[in-house]
């Protein structure tokens, strides 16, 4: 190890720089020689963020898991072990099963539609036409908007009484009576799904656009020479070319729709009407913070965590595959 002999010593003599000041000396003493001991320096430099993650991310997760095994109303007062009572209660609860089903439907539908819309937009932007830059920029706007703002705007657009969409539908004579976009249990889930798709499709578009641009042009030329139709080119050149990007994208969208699609749903419908949009994350919030059953809410949160972890593992595998 290179010691700190004093002012003017070490590399400073080579560089001709002035003697290291006190702070540099102390840092050097703390970190050692980064070249000789890269592991130590890395560990020390990463320590603050690791500590932050442990405190504000891992800690709450562990607390939530622990709380899910405590008796009702005791977690904040030290807890009293109750075993798997909350998980058993969830397994018997038709409301939980209904929420799980809603979550699956919401996840599958919103991921598929987001992917398809994003792919169509990306294919559009691959074409050469006047105003392409403007269209590309405009299509990115939803992704740049805050989630709450998106939810509030869509909520007002689809409002039963005063929403612009219902106004246009009534004024144009398409409907005689307002459509309950957010108040009809048969429609509400699709309405919040539409908002989710609108917010997320630019991400799909950008990801797929990058993948499309990476496909060698020669492959399309060869396909054309071989007499491939546009559909065959799409099927045998484009889709394989974006496959690994698609895997990663679909899993990422799946994670967001399954475990994190809270804001849009909660702001737009609060999980209603009559539980029609109550996904697992919304039910977790309601149980823990509205109905004040923290331990049961923690059990729900743990279930969401485990299910999301499956998606995450798949995503990481896909990402590793993508990056070789």
């Amino acid at each position: 190890m290179t010691g700190v002999a004093g002012p003017g010593a070490d590399g400073d003599a080579r560089s001709g720089a002035p003697a290291p000041p006190g702070l540099r000396r102390r840092l050097h003493r703390l970190l050692g020689d980064p070249l000789a001991e890269p592991g130590r320096a890395s560990a020390l430099l990463l320590a603050p963020i690791a500590l932050g993650i442990a405190l504000f991310y891992v800690g709450p997760i562990l607390f939530g898991v622990w709380a899910s095994f405590q008796a009702e109303g005791t977690a904040m007062e030290g807890g009293r072990f109750a075993g798997t009572v909350h998980y058993e209660s969830l397994a018997r609860d038709p409301r939980f099963r209904n929420s799980l089903w809603i979550t699956v439907v919401f996840t599958v539908a919103s991921v598929v539609v987001t992917y398809v819309v994003g792919l169509l937009a990306a294919l559009l932007l691959m074409r050469s036409f006047r105003g392409r830059t403007f269209v590309g920029s405009a299509l990115l706007v939803p992704w740049s908007m805050p989630l709450v703002a998106v939810a509030v705007i869509w909520g007002w657009l689809l409002d039963y009484q005063f929403g612009a969409v219902n106004y246009v539908l009534r004024a144009s004579g398409l409907v005689a009576r307002s459509v309950g976009f957010l108040t009809d249990p048969a429609i509400a889930l699709w309405s919040v799904g539409a908002a989710q798709v609108w917010r997320l499709f630019p991400l799909a578009m950008v990801t797929l656009l990058a993948a499309l641009k990476a496909i060698p042009h020669e492959l399309y030329e060869s396909a054309r020479v071989d007499g491939a139709t546009p559909w065959q080119q799409f099927r045998h050149v484009t889709l394989p070319g974006i496959r690994s990007a698609s895997h990663a994208l679909l899993l990422l969208l799946g994670i967001w729709a399954f475990g994190r699609a809270f804001t849009i749903i909660f702001v737009m419908t609060g999980g209603g009407p009559a539980g029609a949009t109550e996904t697992l994350v919304v039910q977790t919030y309601l149980e823990a913070f509205r109905y004040f059953r923290l331990e049961r809410g923690s059990a729900l949160g743990t279930v969401v965590l485990v299910l999301s972890a499956v998606f995450t593992v798949l995503y990481l595998r896909a990402r590793n595959e993508r990056h070789g």
Binding site: P185, G272, P273, A274, G275, A276, Y291, F292
Partner: peptide
């Protein structure tokens, strides 16, 4: 009462919305 109005509210929503 705080916990029970949730149970009651769910059934009122079922009457109104479903």
């Amino acid at each position: 009462a705080f916990g029970q109005i949730k149970v009651i509210g769910e059934e009122i929503e079922n009457i109104l919305y479903r």
